[in-house]
Design a protein around this nucleic acid. Sequence first.
DNA 1: CCTAACCCTTACCCATACGTTAGGGTTAGG
DNA 2: CCTAACCCTAACGTATGGGTAAGGGTTAGG
Lengths: 200, 200
Amino acid sequence: MSERNSHRHLVIVAPGSTPEAAAHASDVASRAASSLSSASVFSDGELLLVGDLAKAVGKTVRAIHLYEELGLVRAHERSKGRYRLFTRDALVRVRWIIKLQSLGLSLSDIRALVRGQNDAASAKFAAMRLREVYVAKLVETQHKLSELKALESELEASLRFLSTCHSACESEASVDSCPTCERHPEQSNPPELVAGSRVN
Amino acid sequence: MSERNSHRHLVIVAPGSTPEAAAHASDVASRAASSLSSASVFSDGELLLVGDLAKAVGKTVRAIHLYEELGLVRAHERSKGRYRLFTRDALVRVRWIIKLQSLGLSLSDIRALVRGQNDAASAKFAAMRLREVYVAKLVETQHKLSELKALESELEASLRFLSTCHSACESEASVDSCPTCERHPEQSNPPELVAGSRVN
DNA sequence: CCTAACCCTTACCCATACGTTAGGGTTAGG
DNA sequence: CCTAACCCTAACGTATGGGTAAGGGTTAGG
């Protein structure tokens, strides 16, 4: 992990104004505390470059760009040279996106969710919409959990079964003899995860 | 679920012989007990058409074809008219494939696994290879399990938090006021799953 | 002023796991 | 013989979530 960032001071451009209009606004830079990169070095009104954000959340720059294209994140402002400048809120946002992904939502699912939040007439309504999604995802997640637990048990059973193969099977026995192998005391018939591997 | 299969008797063709060579082999049909479809009706030496297999395992015909192309399943034989005829072993096999998929293996992972089993010099060696894969997958699965449990907790926490929104928030409050809303007694700061939805 | 290290936009590329369509044959009851 | 309901092969289409490359500008220490 080479930490070779060294010189960072960006000129900020007010949202809505053109880059040219702010061409002589380097004073703004200090006001906005826009020292960048090496996130840990700065702690106050820090702004992040896209690469900093990406590193911080463990995604690539391309991914962040994609999320922006889809309307999932937004740079708070741009530098004079059109660099995206993110606030720390973006960290929260992108981590949120990542969590939703791991809950099984696609990026367009998330897009819809974001739209729903933005279009909500009131905070209460937004909260209701969010609730609906989360309730559904909770159910799904619990489903997945029990599926995974079942798979875990099957894997464990299969490994026990295969251990018997290891310790009791003659080295030269052909694979074809496995289905009828009689050396498995605990379980007479192999687990599906083992049986399936034997079948033609 | 329309059960409109009615007339099924296929002429079987011995593996290795051409369809033409078996053109007059309808006697084979009865020997092979090739009555098809409506799987539950037959129980003995039944052979399945691809559609029957597909329905039985909850996949599409196309999926079965794909698995066959990849060398993951094989029809035991073909009818005179080149219909695939599967034994019940194929059911085991395809269900195995599906389980491996839900363990996170791609079809080519599975292909490699199948090759490894087929190429194994001995049953013991095949079992060892299988073990390695399953051990790795067990670890992964346990990882996923704890991730999912964490997500479950977060969802539950978020839902509790959002319930407070529902009961204590004024209807007209704007979404922007949420981050600073002071009506949440239990937790002063919103869960990430809630916080992330508020951020621009 | 120079330069390393970033960043910008545009746009085509990729693997996975099927879906779908096309054009045509098969099966078996009636 | 007719027909509904299947099946066959071949081949192109699709959505996802970025990867990667091209061509060019920006930032800031030195």
